[in-house]
Amino acid sequence: MNKINSYSTGLVAGLAVFFGLMVGAIIMLISGFNPVTGYISLLQSALGSSLNIGEVLRAMTPLILTAAGFLVAQAAGFFNIGLSGQVWVGWIASTWFVLANQGMNPWILIPVAVIIGALGGAVMGYIPGWLRAQFGASEVITTIMLNYIALYGGNAIVQGLPNKLMATTDMTKTLGNSDSLRWDFLSNLTGGSRLNIGFIIAVVALLAIWFIMKRTTLGFEIRAVGLNPNAARYAGMSAKRNAITAMTISGTLAGLAGATEGLGTYLNIFSQSAAPQVGYDGMAVALLASGSFLGIIFAAFLFSVLSVGGLGMPLATGVPTELVSVVTASIIFFIGANYLIRLILVKLDEDDSKDKDKKKKKAIKANQKEAK
Score class of each variant (00 low, 15 high):
residue 126 Y to H: 09
residue 141 I to N: 08
residue 74 Q to R: 15
residue 101 N to L: 13
residue 68 A to H: 11
residue 130 W to G: 00
residue 80 N to Y: 08
residue 123 V to Q: 04
residue 119 L to N: 09
residue 81 I to H: 08
residue 84 S to M: 11
residue 96 W to L: 14
residue 86 Q to G: 09
residue 99 L to Y: 11
residue 67 A to Y: 13
residue 144 I to T: 03
residue 124 M to A: 11
residue 65 L to Q: 02
residue 102 Q to P: 04
residue 132 R to Q: 11
residue 68 A to K: 08
residue 147 N to C: 11
residue 83 L to N: 09
residue 120 G to D: 06
residue 123 V to H: 01
residue 61 T to A: 02
residue 88 W to S: 12
residue 82 G to H: 14
residue 134 Q to R: 14
residue 142 T to K: 06
residue 120 G to L: 02
residue 143 T to Q: 03
residue 131 L to C: 01
residue 97 F to V: 06
residue 85 G to V: 01
residue 131 L to M: 11
residue 111 P to H: 06
residue 131 L to D: 03
residue 138 S to T: 11
residue 67 A to L: 14
residue 75 A to T: 02
residue 102 Q to I: 14
residue 104 M to D: 07
residue 69 G to C: 10
residue 137 A to N: 03
residue 89 V to N: 08
residue 78 F to I: 05
residue 97 F to M: 06
residue 76 A to N: 11
residue 74 Q to H: 15
residue 60 M to I: 13
residue 141 I to Y: 04
residue 64 I to E: 13
residue 132 R to E: 05
residue 145 M to W: 09
residue 104 M to I: 10
residue 138 S to L: 00
residue 119 L to W: 06
residue 139 E to G: 06
residue 128 P to L: 01
residue 76 A to P: 00
residue 109 L to N: 12
residue 103 G to D: 15
residue 146 L to M: 12
